[in-house]
Amino acid sequence: MSPLAPRLLEAARAAGAMLATAESCTGGLIAGAITDIAGSSDVFDRGFVTYSNAAKIDMLGVTAETLEAHGAVSEETAREMATGALARSAATLAVSVTGIAGPGGSGHKPEGRVCFGLAQAGKPTVTETVEFGAIGRAKVRAATVEHALTLLLEALA
Results as ranks from 00 to 15, higher is better:
Met1Ser: 10
Met1Lys: 00
Pro3Ile: 08
Pro3Met: 08
Pro6Thr: 00
Arg7Trp: 01
Arg7Asp: 13
Leu8Asn: 12
Glu10Asn: 08
Ala12Tyr: 03
Ala12Val: 04
Arg13Trp: 07
Gly16His: 06
Met18Gly: 10
Leu19Gln: 13
Ala22Tyr: 03
Ala22Gln: 08
Ser24Gln: 04
Ser24Leu: 05
Cys25Arg: 01
Thr26Tyr: 12
Thr26Trp: 12
Gly28Ser: 05
Gly28Phe: 03
Gly28Ala: 05
Ala31Glu: 01
Ala31Asn: 00
Gly32Asn: 14
Asp36His: 03
Val43Ser: 14
Val43His: 04
Val43Gln: 13
Phe44Glu: 02
Phe44Ser: 04
Phe48Tyr: 15
Phe48Met: 07
Tyr51Gly: 06
Tyr51Lys: 01
Tyr51Ala: 06
Ala55Leu: 14
Ala55Ile: 09
Ile57Asp: 06
Asp58Phe: 04
Met59Trp: 14
Val62His: 07
Ala64Asp: 14
Glu65Cys: 08
Thr66Arg: 02
Thr66Met: 00
Leu67Gly: 10
Leu67Asn: 04
Leu67Val: 09
Leu67Ala: 04
Gly71Asp: 13
Gly71Asn: 08
Glu75Lys: 04
Thr77His: 00
Ala78Phe: 11
Arg79Ala: 15
Thr83Val: 13
Gly84Pro: 12
Leu86Arg: 08
Leu86Asp: 09
Leu86Gly: 11
Ala87Asn: 15
Arg88Lys: 14
Arg88Tyr: 04
Ala90Glu: 14
Leu93Met: 02
Ala94Glu: 10
Ser96Leu: 05
Gly99Asn: 02
Gly102Lys: 00
Gly102Phe: 00
Pro103Ser: 06
Gly107Trp: 03
Pro110Lys: 00
Pro110Trp: 02
Pro110Gly: 01
Val114Arg: 00
Cys115Pro: 05
Leu118Lys: 03
Ala121Asp: 11
Ala121Leu: 13
Ala121Ser: 13
Gly122Asp: 09
Gly122Trp: 05
Gly122Pro: 09
Lys123Ala: 15
Lys123Gly: 08
Pro124Arg: 14
Thr125Arg: 09
Val126Pro: 05
Thr127Glu: 08
Thr129Asn: 00
Val130Ile: 14
Phe132Asp: 08
Gly133Leu: 02
Gly136Asn: 05
Val140Gln: 06
Val140Lys: 03
Ala142Met: 11
Thr144Val: 06
Val145Pro: 06
Val145Thr: 07
His147Tyr: 04
Ala148Gln: 14
Thr150Val: 01
Thr150Phe: 00
Glu154Val: 12
Ala155Lys: 00
